[in-house]
């Protein structure tokens, strides 16, 4: 793992973006581009990231960026990858930078198709668990009980696990990351860059206006999500799942922090009843039970 002090100093996100103060996208993208370097082409569907670039004729992104329709990001990346291959520029990495709306819901058809074809690009989903750009509507990634403008009494359904859907495509690299564990994120980006074929990375991105918390707490909330076990950091190289960073410690020695610590700080969970909290707890416990079993199996094999 590379120490934070030794991260490259080049900035590919130029100051004065259109992002809200405390935005997690620019935190994640700054570090991701530090890891990927300047030989990167970003493919951005309709999302907050398309807005963060600011207005024509200026852009705050220091790497070539293609803005594309909502459902087309993975297909566009396939095309870019094919063009780069024809031009013999295979040292350039096409990277999709999409939100969870463009990944979980609208973009999943193109995503699934491209992964099945084995196209050569990285797909990054920064997951803020809602359609933030259009004004906080529910998405397939919105967790149970969360308030949005379309679920104003709290969402009644449990979010889907896209990581596991992607795993069913047998692609060479899948990882989840968090902006709080930034060295882990950097590491995973570096690793993904070296691998050929479709690669999928999902980053949890707490959104201050959408999740209803103070803008200075973006990184703190992302950290709490991992420490309470609500978000799990893992990577799967050729289908072999391995927990990383803090989640790995949770598996072995550390106790998970109570989920209330994470929920309490967010206004979107203000109306949760005790019953709701128990349901969320149960969901997280079941998830961790699954990971424990995978982990134990591996221990026994060795």
């Amino acid at each position: 793992m590379v120490a934070i002090k030794k991260f490259p100093e080049e900035e590919y996100i130029l100051k004065g973006t259109a992002a809200c103060p405390g935005c997690p996208i620019t935190i994640a993208l700054r570090t991701a581009l530090k890891a990927l370097g300047k030989k990167t082409i970003l493919i951005v569907p309709a999302s907050c990231s398309a807005v963060v670039q600011s207005l024509v004729p200026k852009t705050s992104f220091g790497v070539p960026t293609l803005n594309i329709a909502f459902a087309a990001s993975a297909s566009a990346a396939s095309g870019v990858a094919a063009a780069l291959k024809m031009l013999g520029k295979e040292d350039v990495t096409p990277v999709v930078w999409a939100g969870d709306g463009g990944t979980y819901d609208i973009g999943i058809q193109a995503l699934s198709g491209a992964f099945e074809r084995g196209e050569n690009f990285i797909y990054v989903c920064y997951n803020n668990q809602m359609y933030s750009n259009t004004g906080i509507q529910r998405s397939g990634a919105t967790p149970y009980g969360a308030w949005t403008t379309t679920t104003w009494t709290g969402k009644k359904e449990i979010q889907k696990e896209l990581g596991e859907i992607v795993m069913a495509h047998h692609i060479p690299y899948i990882a989840t990351a968090s902006i709080a564990y930034i060295d882990d994120l950097y590491d995973k980006m570096k690793k993904a860059k070296e691998i050929n074929g479709p690669r999928y990375i999902e980053i949890l991105a707490p959104c201050p206006p959408g999740w209803r918390f103070d803008m200075s707490k973006t990184v703190e909330i992302a950290r709490l999500a991992v420490q309470t076990g609500a978000w799990v950091l893992y990577e799967a190289i050729n289908g072999e799942v391995k927990l990383t960073s803090y989640s790995k410690m949770l598996l072995k020695r550390k106790e998970r922090r109570p989920i209330e610590d994470y929920l309490k700080l967010q206004g979107r969970f203000r109306n949760l009843t005790e019953e709701d909290i128990n349901k969320i707890k149960k969901n997280i416990d079941e998830k961790w039970k699954r990971y424990m079993e995978i982990y134990k199996e591996k221990e026994e094999k060795q």
Binding site: P21, G22, C23, T26, M215, S216, V219
Partner: peptide
């Protein structure tokens, strides 16, 4: 962690107040 990248690595960290949005991260 600075979302804007306005903190510059000098001998000590230095803030570019022209662009700092004051989020407090």
């Amino acid at each position: 962690y600075c979302p804007e990248g306005v903190i510059v690595k000098k001998e000590y960290p230095e803030v570019d107040y022209e662009y700092c949005k004051g989020c407090g991260v």
